[in-house]
């Protein structure tokens, strides 16, 4: 490469300077409903649902592992469906019911998935855990609704929730401590209980 390497975008190139037509950051008034509670916020339109939860509402149970939908640590339930909260804007969820890991227990009583994670040691460092747990809750609802997965032999039929099914359906949640076998055991165990 020749001296004085060119740059091809941001940052660090004079062309990265703001263009005249760049809009100023937009502040949006916004009401988010999280774990049954309403929060009136004024947020930069760029704020992701994840950052709104963590930095503005103070619910830090939902984790930022990669911020690009590549690890699953930020998984929350929106209208009962599991999604990556890092890849969606808070503004897109006005009026939606958001459930985070903090909203799963009923008072002192842990959600069966939470209890099973403790019993089966389904975590080590705990950082992916809220995402794993929310994902498991959403995943079990999908399975109950009869959704097939990549490993379902007959996608037109219904699949029993085997370990292989759990593994495939939970693959969007990375665990670097690699508590995977224990997570699967916990989900298998809790899947049988009344959720």
């Amino acid at each position: 490469m020749a001296a004085g390497a060119a740059s091809f975008g941001w940052p660090g190139h004079p062309s990265a300077a703001p263009a005249p037509d760049d809009p100023a950051p937009q502040m949006l008034p916004l009401r988010l409903t999280v774990n049954g509670r309403g929060h009136d916020l004024r947020l930069d339109s760029r704020t992701t649902l994840l950052d709104a939860l963590r930095e503005h509402i103070g619910l830090t149970g939902t984790k930022k592992g990669c911020d690009h939908g590549q690890c699953g640590a930020c998984t929350v339930l929106v209208e009962g469906r599991r999604i990556n909260s890092c890849l969606t804007l808070a503004a897109m969820h006005e009026g939606d019911a958001v459930t985070t890991v903090e909203g799963l227990a009923k008072g002192e009583a842990l959600h069966p998935i939470q209890a099973a994670f403790i019993a089966h040691d389904g975590f080590q460092c705990g950082y992916c855990t809220p995402g794993q747990i929310c994902s498991a809750v959403g995943m079990l609802a999908e399975a109950r609704a009869g959704w097939p997965s990549h490993v379902t032999a007959d996608i037109a039929g219904t699949a029993a929730l085997s370990d292989a099914e759990i593994r495939e359906r939970m693959s969007g949640n990375l665990c670097r401590c690699s508590a995977y076998p224990n997570i699967v055991a916990a989900i298998r165990d809790a899947a049988g209980s009344d959720l």
Binding site: A3, G4, P11, G12, P14, A16, A17, P18
Partner: peptide, 9 residues
Amino acid sequence: ALVAVQYDA
């Protein structure tokens, strides 16, 4: 992203 760095590479 606005910090503009010129390098001698």
